[in-house]
């Protein structure tokens, strides 16, 4: 017994006559254990961002230097034709990729939700591309797109001799080759999220709608889908995030070609930093990627917080 009743009977105050040293140390154990992770995350999230931000404002070229140069790098980045191609590609890619992957994902989820046989078999097929890297997917699809022995070759062999399908060799359409492959890779993911959402809908609501005489189609349109709108938003945000970070797929599928027609912001960053020795401008471009993510994620986080508060408020 470390504290006797008589000494502290007058005024007990947790700081004036604190717990024994052993207990006080025990209380600090969790914080000690957490410190390395806190430091690592802090380094990664804040120090690295600040560092890259600083380099983007410096006159670095081949090696990081710290002569302050203001927004010069940003100006030259936005003046660059290749950056223009990169962000136009990003917009085109994001629009098609997000919309189509969600549409196909939703359709697959609805199909699988119809009490079908061998459900897990179908799900396994639609989801396996996610286990595979973008590099593998991109490599294999680049073969399929190859006119001399891919799709085009197959269809021509079947008798349609003037069939052309040469997306990857056409500057104008190569971006759509990446779009299609991206959709192929990710619609299973959208399906998994939608399916999780569909399964989380309260069964009693569905029964009530059926008793009200609603058809399956109407039940989905009026009852089930409206109740999973947060899932739609979540899927859209995650897919947008993927598309902003698109790098591996573009490298493996077209390697930014033909020419520079399928440059993406992320591939351009790599190019600036490690092929052309334009570290400052590369850092500026990577800050632009971060800003794009922030534009998507900050409103979404605010929405989430608002949504949770509202849910909590309702009970």
């Amino acid at each position: 017994m470390s504290v006797s009743a008589s000494t502290s009977a007058a005024t007990y105050n947790s700081s004036s006559n604190g717990p024994p040293l052993r207990d006080r140390l025990a209380k600090l154990v969790p914080i000690f254990v957490l410190v390395p992770s806190i430091a690592a995350s802090f380094l990664y999230v804040f120090v690295f961002t600040g560092w890259t931000l600083y380099i983007s404002l410096s006159n670095s070229t081949l090696l990081p230097t710290y002569g302050f140069e203001g927004l010069e790098n940003y100006a030259s980045l936005w003046a660059n034709r290749r950056w223009g191609i990169a962000y136009t590609n990003l917009f085109v890619f994001s629009a098609f990729y997000v919309v189509c992957a969600m549409a196909i994902g939703l359709m697959l989820a609805l199909l699988i939700d119809q009490k079908i046989r061998a459900e897990s078999f179908w799900r396994t097929i639609f989801l396996y591309p996610l286990a595979v890297s973008f590099i593998v997917t991109g490599t294999v699809w680049s073969w399929l797109y190859n006119p001399t022995n891919g799709f085009e070759f197959l269809i021509r062999n079947l008798g349609w001799t003037d069939f052309t399908f040469a997306l990857t060799t056409d500057r104008k359409y190569a971006i759509y080759a990446i779009v299609i492959t991206g959709i192929w890779q990710s619609s299973g993911f959208a399906m998994a999220l939608f399916l999780a959402g569909l399964r989380s809908v309260d069964g009693d609501i569905v029964k009530a709608a059926q008793i009200d005489g609603a058809s399956t189609f109407r039940t989905y349109r009026k009852v089930i889908l409206p109740s999973i709108t947060p899932i739609f938003l979540a899927v859209a945000v995650v897919l947008l995030q993927f598309s902003i970070k698109t790098f591996d797929l573009a490298v493996a599928l077209t390697n930014s070609g033909p020419g520079i027609s399928t440059t993406f912001p992320a591939t351009y960053v790599y190019d600036l930093m490690f092929q052309r020795g334009q570290i400052g401008e590369g850092a500026a471009a990577s800050m632009m990627i971060l800003s794009a993510l922030a534009v998507v994620l900050i409103p979404y986080s605010i929405y989430l917080v608002w949504h949770r508060r509202r849910e909590a408020g309702h009970g």
Binding site: M1, S2, V3, S4, A5, S8, A9, Y12, S14, N17, G18, P19, P20, D23
Partner: peptide
């Protein structure tokens, strides 16, 4: 203050 038995246990 909380005593269990005659021992002050605030910090225990």
């Amino acid at each position: 203050e909380i005593y269990i038995g005659d021992r002050l246990v605030n910090a225990v």
